[in-house]
Design a protein around this nucleic acid. Sequence first.
DNA 1: AGACTAACCTAACACTGTAAGGTCGTCCAG
DNA 2: CTGGACGACCTTACAGTGTTAGGTTAGTCT
Lengths: 221, 221
Amino acid sequence: MARPRTPLLNRELIRETTLRLIDTHGLAAVSMRKIAAELGVRAPSLYSHYANKDELLDDIGDTIAERVDVTGFGTDDWQSALRTWARSYRAALAEHPNMVPFLASSPGNRPGALDAADAIHGGLTRAGWPPRTATLIGASVKYIVVGSAVASFAGGFLDDLDTYNERYPHLSQAHRLRENAAEIDAESFELVLESFLRGLDLQYAAHAPDTESAKRRTEAG
Amino acid sequence: MARPRTPLLNRELIRETTLRLIDTHGLAAVSMRKIAAELGVRAPSLYSHYANKDELLDDIGDTIAERVDVTGFGTDDWQSALRTWARSYRAALAEHPNMVPFLASSPGNRPGALDAADAIHGGLTRAGWPPRTATLIGASVKYIVVGSAVASFAGGFLDDLDTYNERYPHLSQAHRLRENAAEIDAESFELVLESFLRGLDLQYAAHAPDTESAKRRTEAG
DNA sequence: AGACTAACCTAACACTGTAAGGTCGTCCAG
DNA sequence: CTGGACGACCTTACAGTGTTAGGTTAGTCT
């Protein structure tokens, strides 16, 4: 075969096929040859559409990052906006857990990420946070989201639970993991996010005293 | 050469050489052949000491994890213990940033991690937290630490800063990154950790009312 | 002394990402 | 309508990967 009448491949098709393979078989098990095979094609043909494997993975990463919602920073109060951002961010990562290691270790300078960072920083400063603090808050929430995705219980924890119950008595209560690991992950994420926001709210009064939240806190204290 | 008079290799030597190579050249650039070359030996010889590459990397991960300090859970109050744990954990990861992607994606069932989890869980329950909540708090702090290591600003962010200043006005203040990226990472980590602990403290009264912290909060409220 | 094991070696396998260059279909300029 | 450029596939091949098999010899144990 040489050039086919109608193209067999395009970026979207390659992207979706690859993501499906990653989701089902894991990141490490996916090679250019296997992607090509799944598409009924030979590996070098993929290079007509992507310069190399990293560019393909980056592109997949971009499509995942598109589902992150930062619109709240234009409309809602800063706490709600952070919540919306964090939850949609976590949901996007949790949808493709096998991509998380790649997303986490690739530098954070994908195009959408900068738009998002700008929206977040703008929203927080408009809400009264000093620019430097806005940067720190943005990084903090990112830590929480990425940490919850990377250090997930669900991402393989204990294989033979029974042996541990004797050796680690304090953990016995925490077990029956694996079945409810996803639940623990979800609850931990909510706990750390909400506790962080509450702790942050206490600090808000000092920075932006002319707001609802600050007033509430001042009256209460 | 066959078997040498005195062994050229041992696990510690291999481990430290490999870690040094990872620290200086990055995880991806380190292969069994390069490790062997650095040791004046051929790659297959390494398999006399480690079953495979993952076992070697796991061993390195264990030595890094040994520097995590969970002794506070036996002596200090729960907040101080969490702080000590989180900071020493972060410091251990920050010492070898190139190992973080591997540590993060490898399952959390290394031997030391279970001892640590047991100590943490035990300390929190003794302090009055319900077992389930203790699990969630442990996971939360882990998220913060791992997230701060993985999503680090210092781990390569912006390459050409100048172009961004025009396109992303809200970020302009956040810049001069790269040079003070490590500083932002450190401050963000402290912010998220301390805010989380403060938010958590508010919740403490409801669970364990007979403690100093709860009393303080009750009197204040 | 003889057997066994340990620690190195060489050679080789299957696999990886990717470069070079061939073939032919499509499209556009003259 | 034709010629050339380009695009999308192909085969072939290269360097590098983790790892296995099997050889050789030094040290250790009976």
